[in-house]
Design a protein around this nucleic acid. Sequence first.
DNA 1: AGACTGACGGATC
DNA 2: AGATCCGCCAGTC
Length: 123
Amino acid sequence: MGDSTAIPIFNQRVYAVVRQVPKGMVTTYGTIAAALGDPKKAREVGWALHAKPREESAAAYRVVNREGSLSGGWAFGSPDVQRGLLEAEGVGFLPDGRVDLSRHLWRPEGGAGSNLPIQPSLL
DNA sequence: AGACTGACGGATC
DNA sequence: AGATCCGCCAGTC
């Protein structure tokens, strides 16, 4: 029975975090990796999303890189598809075609103020 | 074992 | 702001 062993724990954690991303918000690979305890594994986060079943990837379009750039067409057919999904949820885009992270970046945290978008001072 | 790749990120130029 | 290089880490050849 425990076929869940077929999927690495790390991947399952990634999916769990992605599922928590609320509509109208996005998160980044590095943010997810950091939430899992290893900020260096940002790449593995993207990898996990690539190798996972469709059901789990439902909200994968809410994951972008640290610049807010969309992934490209290989995952959804075209970058416009992902953008369309996000815009439909109220995510704002910059003139550059990137997600406005200053308004829509969501951070996983099981604490207070999780509803409030965090403004990345690094930007 | 060595080298390359990549849904990343950060530092540097 | 854009281009380039480096580091990290798992998977593949």
